[in-house]
């Protein structure tokens, strides 16, 4: 555990708190993509199957349970909560997320480090996480004025990915035989997807006006 990894995990946690806060406090999920949230739920389930048979640390296990719980809570609110579900902008959330799932599965079957059931599912979760933000980014473009909490949620998610890259650089330079090419390439692609959003987020923040993605 290093400071970049810890900061990355805490930023990830904070992003989920911000999103849940927005949904619970405003009783609205306007501007939030249910497809992205469902993809994250799939990502966490397929990646954290190892909760059942491998133990790394209490910290890891607790975080896994928290991430799983928050992902399913968010999906529950957006799809089933009697008030919140009516605020979901279905017509703005049209990205074909099934293609992302299928593409990630094909890629995981072709490129993985060990051809076993759990390893392929874990690899699938890495590939799917890399692209899971796409429905949300497309939806932001269509939403027009983006509220602060939604904008901050996406910003924190991007920060979390950036901090993980710093964590890998740190680990690679301090640990012997630390090497995880699949995770690195996917993570760099994932972070790059936020570049456009970051540009407009910082620009609007600097000019002190409401976030709009052209």
């Amino acid at each position: 555990m290093n400071v970049f990894r810890l900061a990355g995990d805490l930023t990830h946690l904070l992003s989920l708190v911000v999103l849940l806060l927005k949904i619970v406090a405003t009783k609205s999920c306007r501007g939030v993509s249910a497809k992205t949230q469902e993809l994250y739920a799939i990502v966490f389930v397929t990646r954290y199957l190892d909760l059942l048979f491998s133990f790394v640390s209490l910290y890891n296990s607790v975080m896994k349970v928290v991430f799983l719980g928050s992902a399913f809570s968010i999906v529950y609110f957006m799809r089933y909560h009697k008030v919140v579900r009516h605020t979901y902008d279905r017509e703005l959330d049209t990205f074909r997320s099934s293609f992302l799932v299928a593409g990630s599965m094909v890629l995981a079957l072709l490129i993985n480090s060990k051809y076993t059931f759990f390893e392929v599912l874990w690899t699938f979760s890495i590939y799917l996480e890399a692209v899971a933000i796409l429905p949300q980014l497309v939806m932001l473009q269509r939403t027009g004025n983006i509220d602060n909490l939604t904008g901050n949620y996406v910003f924190l998610l991007g920060m979390y990915r950036g901090l993980y890259i710093l964590n890998w650089i740190y680990r690679y330079s301090t640990e012997r035989r630390y090497w995880q090419m699949i995770v690195w390439v996917s993570g760099i692609i994932q972070t790059a997807l936020y570049a456009d959003f970051f540009y407009y987020y910082l620009k609007c923040w600097n000019e002190n006006r409401t976030l709009v993605i052209p």
């Binding site: 995990d9 190892d50 890891n60 480090s113 035989r177 630390y178 090497w179 995880q180 995770v183």
Partner: peptide, 10 residues
């Protein structure tokens, strides 16, 4: 790739 296979990140 042993280190990577331990999946110690989240």
């Amino acid at each position: 790739d042993e280190q990577g296979r331990k999946h110690d990140e989240l």
